[in-house]
Design a protein around this nucleic acid. Sequence first.
DNA 1: ACGATATCTGCATTCAGTGCAGAAATGCAA
DNA 2: TTGCATTTCTGCACTGAATGCAGATATCGT
Lengths: 208, 208
Amino acid sequence: MRYHGRMNLRDRKRARVRQALVDAATELFERDGYERTTVADIAAAADIGTRTFFSYFASKEELLFPESDHRVQAAVDAIAARGPDDSPVEVLVRALYLTGVDNDDLTDRLAALRLRLIREVPAVRGRALQIQLDAQQQIAAHLAEAFPEQLDKVRAGALVGAFVGAVTGAVQVVMEDLPEHHDPKKLRAVVEEATSVALEPWMAQRGR
Amino acid sequence: MRYHGRMNLRDRKRARVRQALVDAATELFERDGYERTTVADIAAAADIGTRTFFSYFASKEELLFPESDHRVQAAVDAIAARGPDDSPVEVLVRALYLTGVDNDDLTDRLAALRLRLIREVPAVRGRALQIQLDAQQQIAAHLAEAFPEQLDKVRAGALVGAFVGAVTGAVQVVMEDLPEHHDPKKLRAVVEEATSVALEPWMAQRGR
DNA sequence: ACGATATCTGCATTCAGTGCAGAAATGCAA
DNA sequence: TTGCATTTCTGCACTGAATGCAGATATCGT
C-alpha cells in the first residue's frame, strides 16, 4: 500500500515522517478530539519540531486528506481507459464508483475518522467540500476532452456536478439521521444504497 | 430593502451597527484585500470594539454572507406556494431560479465582491460551499415534505444535489475561463444549460 | 571527505477567536 | 423622571494556527 521502494534516503525518510504524522494525528484525534489536539501535540508525537509540521502539511485539516490527488488520478485513469462504445455517463459512473467519490474505503481508520469529522467540524467539512469541487473540475475537464463531440466543457462541468451533487445530497440525508453508528460495514452499506438511489435516474437512460 | 421599521431602540441600533460592519468590510476588502484586512480594522472602521465584532458575526467570513437564511427562506416559501398540479422538478426549478441559487444579483457590490473572494480565498470558498450544502439539505427536506408520495427524503436530497451541483459545476467552468467578464446573459444561458443537463434524467420519472 | 543544497528547527510575530468580568446602555415599571 | 433588572459592549488575557527568517543539520553527488 505504500511505496517506499526506490528513493533517496531523504525521500524515504520524508515519507516515513509524513506517515508518522498521519498516524499520530489519527490516534490523537480519536483520543482527544480534533479541536483539542494541537498541531504542536501532533508534531511532538511524531517527534519533529512544531514548525516542521507545516512543511509536510499546509494546515491541520490537510492531514485528514493525505491522498486526495491519488483518487482524482484514479478517476482520470478510468476515463482514459474508456471503451470505444462507452457513453459519457457510463464512463463517469465507472470512474466515480471505482474511486469512491466520497464513499471511501470505510474500512480503514483514517477514512472513518474523516467521515465523522466532516460531519462534526466545520473547518474539516469546508476543506472536504473544496477538495471535492476541485476534483470535480479536473474530472470534468478530462471527460470533456474524452468526448469532444458529445460534451463541451460547460456540459461536462454540469454533468459531473450533477452526479457528485446527487450522491453527496443523498448521502448527506442518510447520514444525518444515522446515530453514532461506528459499524463500518453497516455504514458502507447505507452509503452504497444512497449512491445507487441517487444515480438511479441516470441508469434508466443507459441505452440513450 | 432594509427593515429598520418598528423595533426596540436596541434592535434598531444593533441592525445599524451590523450594516455598518458589512459596509466597512466591503470597503476595506475592496481597498486592501481580504487577507490584509483584519477584524480589528473592520471593527475600528465601524467604531466598535474588536471583541464586539464577534457578537455580530461568528467569524470574518460570515461577514460576506449576511442574508444566507433569507434566501433559503425564499426557496422554502416558493415550495410551500406550489400549485396542485406541479411536479417536484417544476417546483424545485421555480424555487431555485427565483431565489438565485448562487447566480446572485450581480448588481450589488457585496455580491460581486463575494463572488471574487470565493474564487480567490480558500477560506471564503470553503464557507460558501458549506452554506450551499446546508441550504440544499433544508430545501430537500421541505421538498420531500411537500411531495410525500413522489419523493422520499433520500431521493429529494439527490434531486436537489444534482440540480445545485450541476449549476455550480457549470458556472465554475465559465468562471475560470473568462476572468472578470460577468456577462449576466451568458451566465443565465449557462445556468439553463446546466439545469437541463441535471434534470433531464429526472423528467422521465414524472409519472412515477 | 567535502562542498553544494535541501531540510529542520527555534524564535518572534501576526491574527482569528474565546472566556471572563466589569462598565455602559437599554428596557421596564412605578 | 427615577431606580432596578437585563442585555450588550468592551478591554484584557490567553490559546492556537500559520508564516518569515536565520542558523543549525542532514543528505547528495562527486
